[in-house]
Amino acid sequence: MSDGSYLFRGCLIPTRLPYLESSSKYVIDRMGIDAKDLPGASCCVEPIGLKTIAEDTWMVTVARMLAIAERDGRDVLTLCNGCYLSFVEAMHVLRTKERADKVNEVLDQIGLEYKGDVKVRHILDLVHSLGEERLRALVSTDVSMVHVAPHTGCHVLRPSGIGLVEIPYAPRMLADVATWSGARVDHSEEWPECCGGGVSSIDETLSSKMLERVTGRYKGSGANCILTPCPFCFSQFDLRQKEGLPVLYISELLAMAMGAPANVVGLKYHRIRTNF
């Protein structure tokens, strides 16, 4: 890490899921990470809809925020798979000088320049890199009654080859983090499947069918909740699921394990109530 990080909360978490922001900030603080909110934060131009209608808008918008972090000598820490892919993929395509020059022509008009000397991390990556020993040392509360089906979500592992932190087949970082926090892992991800959230606003029936395929497997594994590091997957599971399997976001499980008070974790705001 450089001089610390800027926390990029994205759009979905601060507006619709503030409890994920609350538990994330608690966990980041307990880990001793210096991560204040990114100044001048906008939407990352999410990679499912907005980015696909205007790719250059995405590149310039992300480059603007990367340039702000770069100027201040800080890394960017994201809480969302979509934001993470947006940032990492933009850095990947902006390695080409021609594209970086075009982006900088626009950034120049707002007094910024993107050089590419910045690091972007996802909270899953940050927590996992802490390692088993240091994470276990932060755990003070028994969460062994939490039996998780890990759902990593697409955009920390696909597409491969652009610098995403997780591998596209049999990802294990999320299961590791769950185990280290003291929870039990009841399901093993092999080929990580899409939750269907990306088409929920376009074709609800299609989206629900995709969701059911995924949650049906998790339900059958014996897990008593789904664990995910993605707020979009979290929303899809919590708002649209028929099986009624509760879902936890990564920071909620960690905050519980680290002994956070109930009003910091905010499980009461979930649509599907947790039963542990």
Binding site: I48, C154, R158, P159, C194, G197, V199, D203, L206
Partner: peptide, 12 residues
């Protein structure tokens, strides 16, 4: 075209 979730499984 709008029924793709951009999960990138195809690319993989």
């Amino acid at each position: 075209l709008w029924l793709c979730t951009m999960c990138h499984s195809c690319a993989e």
